[in-house]
Design a protein around this nucleic acid. Structure first.
Lengths: 241, 241
DNA sequence: ATAAAAAACGTATTTTAAACGCTTAAAATC
DNA sequence: GATTTTAAGCGTTTAAAATACGTTTTTTAT
């Protein structure tokens, strides 16, 4: 829920809301997931004014006794049922008129998750749906801007840190990893060069299993070597794809 | 003034909230300047509790009718006298206990400026001083963390966008530009390769003047071709140094 | 059987980065 | 006033990385 939806505000005292000189702090979550070879975004149909009926990101007010990123984790938990989601602060939106209902600044966070992991019923009960980036509708308030900014950040991050750990299932094939990068960058990559590059990073462990669903021939499954993955992450390695 | 100084709080209404029941929004500025071949930071001696007498960044509460980045620009203007400073949002700090005085979240912004440009008397009248990164003292609250984060961001930005426009005087030599990069990265660069690299970007215009102060022989002055600089900026070019 | 599709491995070419040598201009020293 | 010193400026060589593209392999569909 975005600030304006107010249903999760830390107080419901209406006298208080009437007073128009209060500055609220909220958090909104840009939740990226990967499934079916596509990067997707979890969005919601708003049930409150303004912009009721319009799609929006999920969010909440920050409580007085809660860290800002705690608030974001609380939202993520409420929506997906998951506690251990990769999350990173994106940007803070602070324009006076960004939310016509209240003076409210919003700290946007983006999260990366495996779509298959989450509690589908819980998500659906909140009126949430996964949309690919291509078919994404216009969003409420400044939420489209938030998505664009988060996407730009994700793309930039993917250049200097390996990514995929958070978005792919535990076992995955190299073509799947390639499709992830292709959907992040929205462009085709050469499969031979991609394979060479990711294998050169030495963070993949080849398994003795094959995935037979993706192709006729089937592709070997891999998993990340979490120790080496962590090292690579900390070394600030430049992962130019 | 940092949030704790409270002198600029946007409201003092205590009817609804007991005073420590209120969530404040502040902004703090990490002001980078370049001078004498060194990257420096503008910091202040705090005059209020907590941490009075300790060095800190400059900041202010965000007013109810003011955009968050407007607040940051207001602070910059108050301190330096300058309006057109390059400024970028760094990160938002939202831990409950980050400021023992109030529940206050802070949106940190970093600014880049030419030290020679600003109003020295104004700065000094605020108790402000320029410190190099090496001699930087421990700062109040979470301000040291803010500086480290902003520096990391500046370093990363310097890799994918040209920098210097904001930090160097209008006319500058290639060795000066090199010293800027060396002080950002805190490591030595090969002068021959550096020259080759920056000239290959085609954003420098060689002037017919020489700067005779920096060396016996003197070095040609250059200026940025702002049009090409802008193009380069927008192309998202990777400026690996 | 044979064609089609995607995986997997390999090689050649081009581009970019890193390392280093040499000359030049002007001030400082003898 | 010749010589040394210092940093600027230009160039070359070598190493590494990115890009382009060829070939073989495995399996399903026809």
């Amino acid at each position: 829920m975005t600030p304006s939806s107010a249903s999760t505000a830390h107080t419901s005292n209406t006298d208080f809301y009437a007073s128009n000189d209060k500055l609220y702090v909220a958090t909104d979550c840009i939740i990226f997931g990967f499934d079916d070879g596509d990067l997707k975004l979890l969005i919601f149909k708003r049930r409150v004014e303004p912009d009721s009926g319009i799609w929006s990101l999920i969010g909440s007010f920050v409580k007085i006794d809660e860290d800002v990123d705690e608030a974001a984790r609380r939202v993520l938990k409420e929506i997906t049922g998951l506690e251990e989601i990769y999350m990173e602060q994106s940007k803070t939106y602070g324009k006076v008129e960004r939310d016509p209902g209240y003076r409210c600044i919003s700290v946007a966070n983006y999260a990366l998750m495996r779509i298959s992991d989450h509690d589908i019923e819980l998500t659906q009960s909140h009126g949430a749906f996964w949309y690919t980036l291509q078919e994404l509708p216009e969003l409420a308030l400044d939420h489209s801007e938030m998505v664009n900014d988060a996407l730009a950040k994700l793309r930039r991050r993917a250049r200097y840190q390996p990514i995929g750990f958070e978005l792919l299932p535990e076992k995955f094939t190299i073509p799947q990893l390639q499709r992830l990068y292709e959907s992040i960058y929205q462009r085709d990559l050469d499969p031979r060069n991609f394979r060479k590059k990711v294998l050169s990073l030495k963070v993949l462990v080849k398994l003795d299993e094959k995935d037979k669903l993706g192709s006729k021939r089937g592709a070997y499954l891999y998993r990340f070597d979490s120790e080496k993955y962590q090292e690579l992450l900390e070394s600030g390695y430049n992962f130019e794809i």
